[in-house]
Simulated assay, not measured.
Amino acid sequence: MREHLELRSAAEIARIREASLVVHDVLAEVAAAAVPGVTTGELDRLAARATAARGATPAFLGYHGYPAVICISVNDEVVHGIPSDRRALVEGDVVGLDFGVSLGGWFGDAARTVPVGRVSPAAARLLQVGAEALRRGVAAAVPDARLGDVGFAVQQYVEGEGCSVVRDFVGHGIGRKLHEPPQVPNYGAPGTGLRLRPGMVLAIEPMVNAGGFEVRTLDDGWTAVTADGSLSAHFEHTVAITEDGPVVLSEPPKRG
């Protein structure tokens, strides 16, 4: 049975952009507050306040039982880290911030990984690789390309930089629901998979490990960590496929 894929109108994409820009703004506030000494629980409460101030609803809170507003994953934590008042950030940490909202019945989702104070050269390089992997994945999401082209663009670059791409978690469609078809792997072969069509809206989200790609889930049932204890970075945008190419909805349009 084939998955039903929604193709969104320009007006619907504009609504998804509104939600995604709330995500961008809240992430910017939380990222700026991710300094040595702050707890991840404090960052979660900041995200809740910033979301409410913008008239949006957190997408993750209660989703399949997730207990927080934002996912905060530190160092070897790949994704789905649960904020806690017992976890204070320290100089040199890298912190993945994954966040989504609902606004007027439409969803937006994005992630970024940020340094806490001064980080090691290896950590700084990992963040650069993760951000560039996302840029390349987005650039490959053009009409008539295939999902395998997007995954290949990410995987080829990341592995060429001596890092690895997580296999256990993938991107997804987004719109009226937080997670919609199709799945969007960050690995693959060119020319394979679903053909991309204008009107699709995808959450493209590479998760890049400094070591191997294997992960395991902690006893809390949520937090995924690298199996080898290496650092991990997570970057994500909500992206519309248009006749003119991919459009990132989760950052303000560039002027000029």
Rank of each mutant, 00 (worst) to 15 (best):
Q156H: 12
V95S: 07
E77H: 03
V154P: 02
G100K: 02
H64A: 15
L61T: 01
L134G: 07
P58W: 05
A68N: 08
A56Q: 00
V150R: 06
V79K: 05
F107W: 12
I82C: 04
I72Y: 06
V114C: 09
A140V: 03
E132V: 00
L103E: 05
Y157C: 01
T57E: 15
E132M: 12
R112E: 09
Q128F: 04
S84V: 08
V158T: 00
Y157D: 02
G92M: 05
Q128R: 14
V74T: 13
A110Q: 07
V101F: 13
T57G: 05
Q128S: 13
T57I: 13
E77S: 06
D85S: 15
Q156W: 14
F107T: 06
V150P: 03
P143G: 05
V69A: 09
P83I: 04
P83T: 12
D144L: 10
E91T: 10
L147N: 04
A133N: 07
T57L: 14
Q128V: 02
L127Y: 01
P143L: 09
V158C: 00
T57N: 10
V119K: 05
R112W: 08
A139P: 11
F60Y: 14
G104D: 06
G105S: 12
V95G: 07
L97P: 02
P115R: 08
D93M: 03
I70N: 11
G148H: 08
D98G: 06
Q155Y: 01
W106Y: 15
L126P: 00
P83D: 11
L97Y: 12
A124N: 03
A123I: 01
E132G: 03
L147A: 07
H80F: 15
T113W: 01
R86A: 15
T51L: 11
V116C: 12
V116P: 04
R87A: 02
A52N: 10
R125Y: 14
G55N: 06
